Amino acid sequence: MNDAPALPAAVVWTRAIAVASLLALIVLGMMWELWLAPTGNRTLVLKVLPLAVPLAGLLKNRMYTYRWVSLLVWVYFTEGVVRATSDSGSSAVLASIEVVLCVALFAACATHVRWRLRSAKEAAQ
């Protein structure tokens, strides 16, 4: 039996948003470098590998993973901002989408941690 208390719906939603935005970043990065706006060097697709590492932790709902993903995402945010302002055409659009996904991932992770800690504190009282 699992004695852990059920998580509030808001916490479950933040988890879903975090997982969805992480998956979207992985797919966007792969499609961007392979098909949508390749730079000629397809090895840039390897940039999405670090994003695949935390996927298992998010799916297993590990608090530590949410914390460090909220830091890792800023590397991709920075890349998106730089490419959105320096590239043109479809690459700039894809970079803007990357920025939006990074903000969504960060917000979901930060909110998840905050609400989950609050929920645990309330359950302990």
Results as ranks from 00 to 15, higher is better:
residue 68 W to S: 07
residue 96 S to G: 15
residue 72 L to R: 06
residue 67 R to F: 11
residue 75 V to I: 13
residue 63 M to H: 14
residue 97 I to V: 15
residue 88 S to P: 02
residue 91 S to H: 07
residue 65 T to I: 11
residue 67 R to V: 15
residue 58 L to N: 06
residue 79 E to C: 00
residue 67 R to Q: 15
residue 69 V to K: 05
residue 60 K to D: 13
residue 65 T to W: 09
residue 89 G to W: 02
residue 91 S to I: 00
residue 71 L to I: 13
residue 60 K to E: 12
residue 90 S to K: 13
residue 89 G to T: 09
residue 96 S to K: 13
residue 96 S to Y: 03
residue 76 Y to L: 00
residue 86 S to Y: 02
residue 100 V to W: 01
residue 95 A to Q: 10
residue 84 A to K: 03
residue 76 Y to F: 13
residue 78 T to M: 11
residue 94 L to A: 05
residue 79 E to G: 02
residue 90 S to A: 13
residue 68 W to C: 08
residue 73 V to A: 12
residue 102 C to S: 14
residue 96 S to Q: 11
residue 64 Y to Q: 14
residue 98 E to N: 11
residue 67 R to S: 13
residue 90 S to L: 15
residue 59 L to E: 08
residue 79 E to K: 02
residue 101 L to C: 06
residue 96 S to V: 08
residue 90 S to N: 11
residue 62 R to N: 10
residue 64 Y to F: 14
residue 81 V to R: 07
residue 98 E to Q: 13
residue 75 V to T: 10
residue 97 I to A: 09
residue 77 F to T: 01
residue 102 C to H: 08
residue 92 A to R: 14
residue 67 R to Y: 12
residue 60 K to G: 05
residue 92 A to F: 10
residue 85 T to N: 10
residue 70 S to E: 07
residue 97 I to Y: 00
residue 78 T to D: 07
residue 93 V to S: 10
residue 65 T to F: 13
residue 62 R to T: 04
residue 79 E to L: 06
residue 90 S to M: 14
residue 84 A to P: 04
residue 82 V to P: 00
residue 102 C to M: 05
residue 90 S to Q: 14
residue 79 E to W: 04
residue 72 L to N: 06
residue 70 S to G: 11
residue 74 W to C: 06
residue 91 S to W: 01
residue 63 M to F: 10
residue 59 L to Y: 04
residue 100 V to A: 15
residue 59 L to A: 09
residue 57 G to N: 08
residue 59 L to T: 09
residue 98 E to L: 09
residue 92 A to Y: 12
residue 77 F to N: 01
